[in-house]
Design a protein around this nucleic acid. Structure first.
Lengths: 158, 158
DNA sequence: GTCATAACGACAACATGTTGTCAATAGAGT
DNA sequence: ACTCTATTGACAACATGTTGTCGTTATGAC
């Protein structure tokens, strides 16, 4: 890599005040995401699942879906979902059902054991969430939710 | 796995209002994190880095640090940092320097080529951040930052 | 009905990050 | 000095997720 002398380096433009605060929001989002994933692992363990299994199983709670459908909903590749789905079926937490609309694309459905696991997680998750919520002001939480959603929309519309 | 009949299933307690909003905040955090990581990949590409390389290199911009130190700062395992660090050194973006305080724990330092790459990323990142910030109210952004930081603190103190 | 296109699952290769184990090293207490 | 403990880097195994390629299957245009 060719590196020009330092005096020729391009200087980044000045950061707007909103940009500066947003940068901190971005870093906080990364950090919070990591902590929440840890917590999700712990909660999911209450149902004998991992966070990834919980997420995939959560995608077929309301109705059976093809693996590719779940991937689209979750925003991850269908191959990633496929691996987890196979593991869930292997452990009896989900099952493949024939798809009347597509011979190869079987439908992934939650079994009774799967619903049982999800229920046990919910029993642990609700107190955890409520307790964490006591540390922040409700109106601030609403503002935060709205702001995060605005940012998501802005990033996804591009 | 033994699954009792449905009528015997434990019911999750009622969710507090704050808990309900917080649940949406959590889901939004996951989603925003994914979008931000995508954006980070694009920005890092401006310097010929990946997001992971950018993160590690960013950990030694101010001063050389051991791999284990960088891991602690970033909250990831030192083995993960080690793999990236070796790649950065292999490509000349960083270098290992002898550590006067520890014979085995060499210090990872950013090279001129590394600073050059980081600078090019910053040139692209500032306009990106400022533009994204225009879509949200500045006070709301401050409230969001404060709320996220409160949640992080609460989760980390445990 | 035929055919081109798109969607799907299967498989492989790879990127990223974690945990576990081990030996080398540093530092603190005795 | 000696020893115990914590830290560190190296190595292996594994979990999660991505991309690419291939053959199969639906679907829509003609």
């Amino acid at each position: 890599m060719t590196v020009p002398p330092r005096e020729d380096w391009p200087k980044p433009g000045p950061q707007s005040e909103g940009g500066a605060v947003l940068t901190d929001v971005v870093l906080s989002t990364f950090r919070l995401n990591a902590r929440l994933m840890e917590a999700a692992q712990g909660l999911a363990a209450n149902g004998g699942l991992t966070a990834a299994w919980w997420q995939v199983l959560g995608g077929v709670l309301d109705e059976p879906r093809s693996v590719a459908d779940v991937g689209r909903i979750m925003g991850v590749s269908r191959q990633g979902v496929q691996r987890i789905a196979d593991l869930l079926v292997e452990r009896g937490l989900a099952e493949y059902r024939p798809n009347p609309a597509h011979r190869r694309a079987k439908l992934l459905a939650c079994t009774e054991a799967g619903y049982w696991a999800i229920r046990k997680i919910a029993v642990a998750q609700h107190p955890w969430t409520s307790e964490l919520a006591t540390s922040v002001d409700l109106d601030d939480l609403r503002t935060t939710l709205s702001t995060l959603q605005t940012l998501i929309t802005k990033l996804e519309e591009a």
